[in-house]
């Protein structure tokens, strides 16, 4: 058991240092590297600290896997959905014609506007 914790600890330190030292020098690949290192550290800690997937060690049974999967799905929808919608909004906001554009193209005239 001590061995598992030590492996997890050392790997986590290495991954933290990799993110910290390498990311600023990688330019375009920095974000993929940071995300990959964070996810890898997540799996390292789930495996070596929380003993997920090791039957018998901590009474890990099917219900925990189900809970983890459910949480992962909700988080995926929540975070992915938020970023998607907000990015979309920002894009359409940038392309939104102003009132002046509408007047200039005759789509609308100031005197016909409803107030």
């Amino acid at each position: 058991m001590i061995r598992a914790y030590t492996i997890g600890f050392v790997l986590s330190i290495l991954l933290t240092l990799v993110s910290f030292l390498l990311a600023p020098n990688l330019g375009f690949f920095a974000i993929p590297l940071l995300v990959a290192a964070a996810l890898l550290q997540l799996f390292v800690q789930l495996r070596f600290f929380l003993h997920i997937g090791q039957r018998g060690v901590d009474g890990v049974s099917g219900s925990y896997t189900l809970l983890l999967t459910l949480a992962a799905v909700i988080i995926g929808i929540l975070v992915g959905g938020t970023l998607w919608i907000m990015a979309n909004l920002q894009r359409s906001h940038m392309h939104m014609p102003t009132l002046q554009d509408l007047y200039a193209h005759g789509v609308m005239a100031p005197q016909n506007e409803l107030h």
């Binding site: 933290t16 993110s19 990311a23 940071l34 964070a38 997540l42 800690q45």
Partner: peptide
């Protein structure tokens, strides 16, 4: 809590500094 912090370290602090 340490697992949450990995993501705070990455998303809050490191990515915006790139």
């Amino acid at each position: 809590l340490d697992i949450i912090w990995i993501f705070i370290f990455t998303i809050v602090y490191l990515i915006p500094l790139l």
